[in-house]
Amino acid sequence: MGLMGRRVLVTGADTFWGGRVIQALEEEPTIDVILGLGEHDPSVPFERAEFVRADQTYSILHRLVRATAVDTIIHTFLVSDSTTVSSRALHEINVIGTMNLLAAAGAEGSKVSSLVVKSSTKIYGANERDPYFFTEENRRSTSAHTMVERSLIEAESLIDDFAQDHPEIAVATLRFANVLGGGLRTPITRNLSRPLCPTLLGFDPQLQFVEATDVVRSLEHAVKRDLRGTYNVAGRGRIPWSEVVKLAGARPLPIPAVHHKLLMRPFQAAGIYEMPDELADLLRFGRGVDTSKIEATGFRYRATSAGAVQSFTEQLRLDRSAGRSPTTYRYEHDVEQFFRHSPAVVDRR
């Protein structure tokens, strides 16, 4: 049904992804209303989106959904990087937050007709028994042993149940491969940005990446097309980790796989490297997903897996030469409100 006249709510507006999605939606003049929901101040400026503050678990969502009559929710606030928050917060955000979101979207008087969720291919895990290309129907080979994987599984099962209970709402879950580019910071980008990048000795797994703009574009695509069901999103091709390290201009630092936890600990404590369990599994067995399902809906990628690595490398070189661009933006509630609502403002764009 396209974007004409839509009233869109974006969760995690204070995070990297929420901010990027809102900025992309602001480019679409036919969208009626854009609401951003977040716990902290947004880190990027919004032109016309309204920002609403909420706690981690979104307890005010119920009122908000009814009061604003939003018809579309983009749920970008599923945390898939376990190094950014405590495991308790991870559960609160991914499971309880999603639960409240779904309760609000399905409540009586809700106008929500479309829900798009940003999930991760981490949900498949990484194991020697895996198929080389997971399809959306494949189950993971072993039970999840990391907190982030468990919470994503739980969140997705809540979403599945919701989709079954509410056939009138188009629910799409997009599972993204590891993202590179666009100034995003993850354990992988941190390790790759060092002159020596950790690898597991004797292992050279094949990985898939997705470029940051393709993440935003595919979420937008899912909204525009009212997609239903689960979709893998990953750039074409699988690349050996050794080649990724080379493309990023780093040299490999091989760590014996059996003792990697012990050996990595001082580096992690010093903030040089990150090696959460889910990354250690990935650097041993790699992961690939089949992306034909989302391509069949008409989505076209801007970058392959190697293209995503390239985009990351270029950003890295720029940062090294010109320095990381300082964050000049600071969210001021009164100022934003003035520009949006004061009768004195003539041109609101």
């Binding site: 080389y132 290309f133 094949q206 074409r236 091709g237 699988r238 690349i239 050996p240 050794s242 080649e243 080379k246 493309l247 690939g288 076209r300 990628y301 801007r302 970058a303 392959t304 190697a306 293209g307 690595v309 390239q310």
Partner: peptide, 19 residues
């Protein structure tokens, strides 16, 4: 393997998707 849509693919090695 897949139809080429002209996306730049700056690979250095020749390892295919099966390793």
């Amino acid at each position: 393997v897949v139809e080429d849509e002209g996306l730049p693919d700056p690979r250095q090695g020749d390892v295919d998707e099966w390793g």
